[in-house]
C-alpha cells in the first residue's frame, strides 16, 4: 500500500518534470517570446539611461562630480596605465636591442653582480689581512 503510493508519487513527479521541461523548453525557444523579452530589456535599459542622465544633471546642478564623470576619470586612468605598459615594453625592447650590439656596455644587472663580487673579494682580502 505504502509502496504503491511511493510509486504513484514517483510516476507523477516524472510526468510533471517531463511536461514542465517540454513546456518551458518550447517557451524559451519561442521567437515571439524572445522578441518580447528583448523589448522589455530594451525598455528597462532606456529607462536606466534616462534615470542616470537625470541623476547626473542633479549632481552637476549641485556642483558635484557625477558617476559618469567618475567613470570617465577611471577609464582615463586605465588608458594612462595601458600607455605606460606599452612604453615600458618598448623601452625594454630598446635596451635589449642595444645590449645585443657588439661593444655594448654591460647590462645593469650583470654590472651589479660584478660589483657585488668585487666587494666580496675586497672584504675577503681585508679579513685575510
Amino acid at each position: 500500500m505504502f509502496n504503491m503510493g511511493d510509486d504513484l508519487m514517483k510516476q507523477w513527479t516524472e510526468n510533471w518534470e517531463k511536461l514542465m521541461g517540454e513546456h518551458l523548453e518550447k517557451l524559451v525557444h519561442n521567437e515571439k517570446f524572445i522578441n518580447e523579452m528583448s523589448k522589455s530589456i530594451a525598455a528597462t535599459m532606456t529607462g536606466k539611461a534616462m534615470y542616470s542622465k537625470l541623476i547626473d544633471e542633479q549632481m552637476a546642478a549641485m556642483n558635484l562630480p557625477s558617476r559618469t564623470e567618475m567613470v570617465k576619470v577611471l577609464q582615463k586612468l586605465t588608458d594612462i596605465e595601458e600607455r605606460l605598459i606599452d612604453l615600458s615594453e618598448r623601452f625594454e625592447d630598446y635596451v635589449e636591442a642595444q645590449s645585443r650590439k657588439p661593444g655594448a656596455p654591460e647590462k645593469k644587472s650583470r654590472l651589479k653582480s660584478r660589483q657585488k663580487q668585487n666587494l666580496e673579494k675586497s672584504k675577503a682580502f681585508v679579513l685575510n689581512k
Binding site: V28, H29, E31, I34, N35, M37, S38, K39, I41, A42, M45, T46, K48, A49, S52, V71
Partner: peptide, 20 residues
C-alpha cells in the same frame, strides 16, 4: 543555437547607451 537567438535580438544599442 539558442544563445545566438537571444544575441540576435538583444538590444545592443540600448545596452551600449546605458551600461558600463
Amino acid at each position: 543555437g539558442i544563445l545566438a537567438n537571444y544575441a540576435n535580438t538583444f538590444p545592443v544599442e540600448e545596452f551600449s547607451a546605458s551600461m558600463e
